[in-house]
Structures are given as structure tokens and as C-alpha cells.
Amino acid sequence: MSVDFTLDLRGESCPYPVIYTLEALEGMTKGELLQVITDCPASFRNVPEEVLKHGYQFAKEPVKNGQEYLFYIVA
């Protein structure tokens, strides 16, 4: 599993993690892998929800890394 793009959202608060993630996925080619690093607690919940609702899949389970989460999403 190789990451094509990384979205580093550390320090960003709502609603920008969701907006940035969905926009990044829109701009990528289908099948590419996006890594999201986020530390906004609200985004631990609303990013995965929105990603799935907008029809994308997770490449693997989210990783909790201390006060951050890592998401791996297939565009």
C-alpha cells in the first residue's frame, strides 16, 4: 500500500478538515490513495462519516496516533 498524497491537517479546525479532504479526493484520480493526518477531535468522527457518505472507501482502519488520527482513503 503506497500513499500517493498526504493531507496534513494538523492545527485545522472544523469545517476545514472535511472540506479539504473531500476536495483533495475530488482532485485525485480514481484508485489513488490519500493519507490524512488530523488532530481536530471533531474530525475524528466527521471526516470518516463524510468520506463514506460521499462514496469513498477506506484502504484500512483509521490509526489512532496519540492525539492525532491517520486516515487512509481511496479516491
Binding site: 498524497f5 498526504t6 496534513d8 469545517p15 476545514y16 493519507q35 493526518i37 496516533n65 496519540g66 491517520l70
Partner: peptide, 27 residues
């Protein structure tokens, strides 16, 4: 508010980079 938050000048630009990037070290 949501309309304004979505405009380019308000929203700003994320740090989107090619390839992998290391997360912070966990204590």
C-alpha cells in the same frame, strides 16, 4: 456563513503533498 467559509480566500489552502509523510511521534 457556510457560503463564505467555502470561498477560496476564506478557506485558504491545505498542506497537500505528494507521497507519504510521517505523523507525530507518540509519547
Amino acid at each position: 456563513g457556510a457560503k463564505i467559509a467555502k470561498t477560496r480566500w476564506w478557506k485558504g489552502k491545505p498542506s497537500l503533498t505528494k507521497g507519504d509523510k510521517k505523523p507525530s511521534a507518540e509519547k
